[in-house]
Computed example of a mutant assay.
Amino acid sequence: MSRLFVAIGDSFTEGVGDWDSRYPNGVRGWADRVAKQLSKQDPRWRYANLAIRSKRLQQIIDEQLQPALDLRPTVVSVYAGGNDILELRTSITPLMESYEDMVSRIAAAGARPLLFTGFDVRLHPVLEPMRRRNWTYNDHVRRIADTYGALLVDYWCFDEYHDQRLWDIDRLHMSPAGHKNMAAHVLRVLGIDHTLSAKPLRPAQQLTVAELLRKESAWWGEWVIPMFGRRLRNVTLGDHLEPRWPEPIRPADGLKRLAAERFNASAGHAPSS
Results as ranks from 00 to 15, higher is better:
residue 228 F to T: 08
residue 259 A to P: 09
residue 247 E to Q: 12
residue 250 R to W: 05
residue 166 L to Y: 12
residue 241 L to F: 07
residue 190 L to A: 06
residue 23 Y to V: 03
residue 13 T to G: 11
residue 190 L to I: 03
residue 110 G to P: 12
residue 173 H to V: 02
residue 44 R to C: 04
residue 244 R to V: 00
residue 19 W to R: 15
residue 70 D to S: 15
residue 24 P to G: 05
residue 213 L to H: 06
residue 262 R to Q: 13
residue 101 D to C: 12
residue 55 K to M: 15
residue 168 D to C: 06
residue 86 L to H: 03
residue 40 K to L: 15
residue 198 A to R: 08
residue 254 G to P: 06
residue 100 E to Y: 12
residue 145 A to T: 11
residue 245 W to L: 04
residue 99 Y to I: 14
residue 47 Y to E: 11
residue 111 A to G: 09
residue 95 L to T: 09
residue 1 M to C: 02
residue 195 T to D: 14
residue 35 A to S: 05
residue 95 L to K: 04
residue 224 V to G: 01
residue 175 S to I: 00
residue 262 R to T: 10
residue 173 H to F: 00
residue 22 R to M: 06
residue 4 L to P: 01
residue 81 G to I: 01
residue 100 E to L: 15
residue 161 Y to G: 04
residue 9 G to W: 00
residue 192 I to P: 07
residue 49 N to K: 07
residue 4 L to R: 05
residue 245 W to Y: 02
residue 156 W to A: 13
residue 117 T to E: 11
residue 218 A to F: 11
residue 70 D to G: 15
residue 24 P to W: 03
residue 234 N to S: 15
residue 234 N to P: 07
residue 259 A to R: 01
residue 262 R to K: 12
residue 147 T to P: 09
residue 5 F to S: 08
residue 103 V to M: 08
residue 94 P to Y: 05
residue 144 I to C: 15
residue 55 K to F: 14
residue 200 P to K: 05
residue 27 V to G: 11
residue 113 P to W: 04
residue 99 Y to V: 15
residue 83 N to D: 05
residue 179 H to K: 09
residue 240 H to C: 13
residue 10 D to K: 03
residue 140 H to R: 14
residue 212 L to D: 06
residue 146 D to W: 07
residue 26 G to H: 08
residue 232 L to K: 15
residue 29 G to L: 12
residue 238 G to P: 12
residue 101 D to V: 13
residue 212 L to W: 02
residue 180 K to D: 07
residue 60 I to M: 08
residue 115 L to I: 11
residue 134 N to E: 06
residue 66 Q to L: 15
residue 43 P to K: 00
residue 86 L to W: 02
residue 183 A to I: 00
residue 4 L to W: 01
residue 190 L to R: 02
residue 131 R to Y: 01
residue 192 I to E: 04
residue 67 P to S: 15
residue 91 S to T: 08
residue 39 S to V: 03
residue 110 G to T: 11
residue 212 L to P: 04
residue 201 L to W: 04
residue 189 V to I: 14
residue 167 W to K: 05
residue 58 Q to A: 10
residue 169 I to P: 01
residue 112 R to E: 10
residue 245 W to A: 03
residue 188 R to H: 13
residue 178 G to K: 03
residue 92 I to V: 14
residue 63 E to K: 11
residue 10 D to T: 03
residue 187 L to T: 08
residue 13 T to M: 04
residue 91 S to L: 10
residue 213 L to F: 02
residue 6 V to R: 06
residue 71 L to H: 12
residue 147 T to H: 10
residue 13 T to V: 13
residue 79 Y to L: 12
residue 183 A to N: 06
residue 162 H to M: 06
residue 19 W to S: 13
residue 206 Q to W: 00
residue 145 A to K: 15
residue 89 R to C: 09
residue 217 S to H: 07
residue 143 R to L: 14
residue 201 L to D: 05
residue 91 S to V: 07
residue 165 R to A: 06
residue 226 P to H: 04
residue 267 A to Q: 09
residue 200 P to Q: 10
residue 97 E to Q: 14
residue 106 I to K: 01
residue 161 Y to L: 12
residue 255 L to H: 11
residue 184 A to R: 10
residue 76 V to S: 12
residue 70 D to C: 13
residue 69 L to D: 13
residue 7 A to V: 11
